[in-house]
């Protein structure tokens, strides 16, 4: 989903910065608060960031005959919310833009919007709605992470279609073209990422469930139920 350097003409790359910067600022504020008030939760934050680092470095082949990478943002979005995830996304996207010529600095605003903000926001909303509806925790995590990944690529397609629709004569046709490339390729990858995220959450519940309870991600009763202890 990395839109390459220079591949968003004016005014689109500026507009996506206007969209992303306030969220990143709010995320930094939240992150600062978290770091100063709850130092004990820092390791979990590191794990969430590292998960994005690992997953976004893996270029996986898809059934469509092309390769793409997962995003890893669902986990951070569930634990810390989309704003903090946006900050983690900036770190990863900067690394790839500066050292790998993957993505770009001028397109950073747009790439953060898709991978760091809108995808994670979808995960966050799905997670909250699913938990409210009393669906199994791991199923909800799976769905949230799968859609964080997939929606990211839908957003990238939309961003490119918006930017080039005037030259291509029509937004819808162009959007379909990008969706075929990005969103179809991403389906198996997104499912794989959802399954991995759910599995990792199983281990977090095993070793550090108190942190999730503290972050109000999950209630103590749910933890007890998942661990098979009657409350």
């Amino acid at each position: 989903m990395h839109i390459m350097e220079g591949f968003l003409p004016s005014p689109w790359w500026q507009l996506w910065f206007v969209f992303s910067i306030p969220v990143i600022m709010f995320g930094m504020y939240r992150l600062n608060k978290l770091v100063s008030e709850r130092r004990d939760l820092l390791p979990l934050l590191a794990v969430a960031g590292a998960f994005i680092f690992v997953l976004s470095s893996l270029k996986l082949p898809s059934v469509t005959g092309s390769s793409s990478h997962p995003t890893g943002t669902g986990m951070a979005a569930i634990m810390f919310g989309p704003a903090v995830t946006a900050v983690l996304g900036v770190i990863v996207l900067l690394y790839q833009a500066l050292f790998l010529a993957h993505g770009g600095l001028t397109t950073l605003g747009a790439n953060v919007a898709s991978m760091g903000i809108i995808g994670p926001l979808a995960a966050y909303l799905i997670y909250k709605a699913g938990m409210k509806a009393n669906i199994n925790f791991y199923v909800v995590v799976f769905l949230a992470a799968t859609f964080a990944d997939w929606i990211t690529y839908v957003v990238t397609s939309t961003q490119l279609a918006l930017a080039f629709s005037s030259q291509a004569g029509g937004f819808i046709g162009l959007l379909q073209g990008f969706l075929v490339i990005f969103a179809t390729t991403q389906v198996p990858l997104a499912i794989m990422e959802g399954a991995l995220t759910a599995l990792i959450f199983k281990y977090i519940i095993q070793v550090k469930s108190d942190a999730l309870v503290e972050l109000k991600v999950i209630s103590q009763e749910t933890v007890n139920k998942l661990r098979g202890i009657s409350a």
Binding site: E5, G6, A97, L105, T156, F164, G177, F178, F182
Partner: peptide
């Protein structure tokens, strides 16, 4: 199994009749 980012670039080049990125890569390029 090439990357989708490259495939999207091709589409852009096609539909615009040869889009030239307005700025080249800024960071380190492997």
């Amino acid at each position: 199994f090439g990357g989708v980012d490259g495939a999207a670039e091709e589409v852009i080049t096609d539909v615009t009749g040869g889009y030239e990125p307005w700025i080249g890569n800024i960071g380190f390029e492997p």
